Deep mutational scan, measured.
Amino acid sequence: MAASAHGSVWGPLRLGIPGLCCRRPPLGLYARMRRLPGPEVSGRSVAAASGPGAWGTDHYCLELLRKRDYEGYLCSLLLPAESRSSVFALRAFNVELAQVKDSVSEKTIGLMRMQFWKKTVEDIYCDNPPHQPVAIELWKAVKRHNLTKRWLMKIVDEREKNLDDKAYRNIKELENYAENTQSSLLYLTLEILGIKDLHADHAASHIGKAQGIVTCLRATPYHGSRRKVFLPMDICMLHGVSQEDFLRRNQDKNVRDVIYDIASQAHLHLKHARSFHKTVPVKAFPAFLQTVSLEDFLKKIQRVDFDIFHPSLQQKNTLLPLYLYIQSWRKTY
Rank of each mutant, 00 (worst) to 15 (best):
N254M: 05
D127K: 06
C236H: 02
L74T: 04
I301M: 08
R113E: 05
V100C: 10
L238Q: 13
E295H: 11
A210H: 00
A49E: 07
E106G: 10
N317P: 12
R218E: 05
D245L: 08
I171L: 15
Y125V: 03
W151R: 08
L217N: 00
D261C: 05
I326G: 06
E122V: 07
K166N: 11
A273Q: 00
A200Y: 00
V87L: 10
A287Q: 01
T120Q: 08
I259V: 14
I262N: 03
L198F: 06
H272G: 07
I308P: 11
D307E: 06
S76P: 04
A141L: 00
F276E: 06
M233D: 04
S85Q: 13
L217Y: 02
I207N: 01
Q99S: 12
V229P: 07
H206M: 04
S85R: 10
H202C: 05
Q290E: 10
K331H: 09
E160R: 05
L322R: 02
K118H: 09
A92Y: 03
R150V: 07
R144D: 05
K154T: 06
S50H: 14
N128P: 03
E63N: 13
F309A: 04
L217W: 05
F276Q: 07
L190S: 02
P311H: 09
T332V: 12
I235L: 11
R249T: 09
M112K: 10
I326Q: 07
A92H: 03
Y222V: 12
A178L: 01
I171E: 02
F288R: 00
P129C: 11
V282K: 10
A178Y: 02
E160S: 14
H59G: 15
H239V: 00
K316F: 09
L138A: 00
V95N: 05
M153F: 12
Q115F: 06
H223V: 07
G240F: 03
A204I: 00
L231Y: 01
K154D: 06
I262G: 02
N254I: 11
R169Q: 11
N254L: 09
Y222M: 10
L247P: 03
V280D: 02
R68L: 07
H131C: 12
L152D: 01
Q251Y: 13
F276K: 06
F288D: 00
L298S: 00
V258T: 11
L90G: 02
Q182M: 11
F297P: 00
E122S: 13
P281F: 00
Y70H: 15
N170D: 15
A210I: 02
L247Q: 04
V241S: 04
L298I: 12
L64C: 07
I262F: 05
L186A: 05
Q115T: 10
T220H: 06
R113H: 08
R84I: 08
L294V: 10
L78M: 09
A204C: 05
I109V: 12
M237G: 11
V241P: 00
L324R: 03
V214W: 02
L268G: 08
L111S: 15
K283C: 12
R150E: 05
L319H: 08
L268F: 08
E158H: 13
E175M: 03
N128S: 14
V304C: 11
K161F: 08
H310W: 01
T318A: 15
K118T: 05
K316D: 07
H145K: 05
S242E: 03
W55A: 10
Y187M: 08
F288C: 01
R150Y: 13
K196H: 10
T279P: 04
N176I: 14
E191K: 05
L90I: 14
I301C: 09
L65F: 06
L138W: 00
K101H: 15
H199G: 07
E173D: 09
E160T: 11
E179Q: 07
A81P: 14
K101N: 14
L111R: 11
T215M: 12
K67M: 11
P80A: 09
H239D: 02
G72N: 11
A200R: 01
S183R: 06
A263N: 01
Y177F: 07
F309D: 01
K299S: 11
T291L: 05
G53I: 14
K166I: 13
A273T: 02
K161N: 11
K209N: 03
N94Y: 06
S183H: 01
A210R: 03
L111N: 13
L185K: 00
W329E: 03
L174I: 07
K299L: 14
D307L: 00
T181A: 12
R159C: 05
V156E: 00
D234P: 03
I192L: 11
D296C: 08
S83A: 15
Q290T: 09
V156K: 00
E175G: 00
N94L: 03
H202I: 04
E137W: 03
I109R: 07
Q302I: 06
L74A: 05
I213P: 02
I213K: 00
F230E: 11
L152N: 00
F93K: 01
G72M: 11
S45W: 10
S264P: 00
Y333W: 05
Y260F: 15
R226L: 12
K166F: 13
W151V: 08
T148H: 10
E106L: 09
P281W: 02
C75E: 10
H269Y: 04
Y70K: 08
L77N: 03
D234S: 07
W55P: 15
V229R: 03
P321H: 02
M114I: 13
D252K: 12
K271L: 12
D305C: 04
A167S: 14
K271M: 11
Q99L: 09
V282T: 11
V280T: 05
Q243R: 03
I155A: 07
D102T: 10
T57M: 12
W55L: 13
Y60E: 07
L111Y: 14
V214L: 11
P281G: 04
K283R: 11
A203Q: 00
L77T: 04
Q251I: 13
G110M: 08
S275T: 09
S205G: 08
N170C: 06
Q315G: 07
T291D: 01
H199T: 13
V95K: 02
A219K: 05
Q115I: 05
L147W: 01
S293F: 11
R274L: 00
C61R: 02
E175I: 05
R144T: 10
I308W: 02
R303Y: 07
H59L: 10
K316A: 11
L217V: 08
L313M: 12
P129F: 10
D58L: 08
K149P: 04
Q315F: 09
K331N: 12
H277L: 07
V100Q: 11
T215Q: 11
W55F: 15
A135P: 07
G110F: 05
E82G: 11
I308A: 06
Q211C: 15
H202K: 05
R84T: 06
A284H: 00
D58Q: 14
Q99M: 15
W151T: 05
F306L: 02
L97S: 08
V292S: 10
A135D: 06
K143M: 07
I192R: 05
Q99R: 10
S275V: 10
R150I: 07
E175V: 07
K316H: 10
R249Y: 11
R303N: 10
S264M: 08
Y323K: 11
D127C: 06
K119L: 04
N170P: 00
A167W: 15
E191V: 00
V214S: 06
D123C: 07
L247R: 07
N317I: 07
V241C: 14
P80N: 10
T220L: 12
K166P: 12
Q302S: 07
Y70R: 11
K166H: 13
L64K: 13
W117T: 01
A284K: 02
C236W: 03
D305F: 01
P80Q: 05
E158W: 12
C126G: 15
V95E: 05
A81K: 15
P52Q: 08
N162E: 07
V95W: 05
P133K: 10
S103Q: 12
S184G: 12
D261W: 06
P281V: 02
T215K: 05
T220D: 00
K209V: 05
I308F: 00
D252N: 10
L138F: 01
A210L: 01
H277A: 14
I171M: 13
A204V: 01
V255H: 09
V304R: 05
S225D: 11
K166Q: 10
W139H: 14
S76M: 06
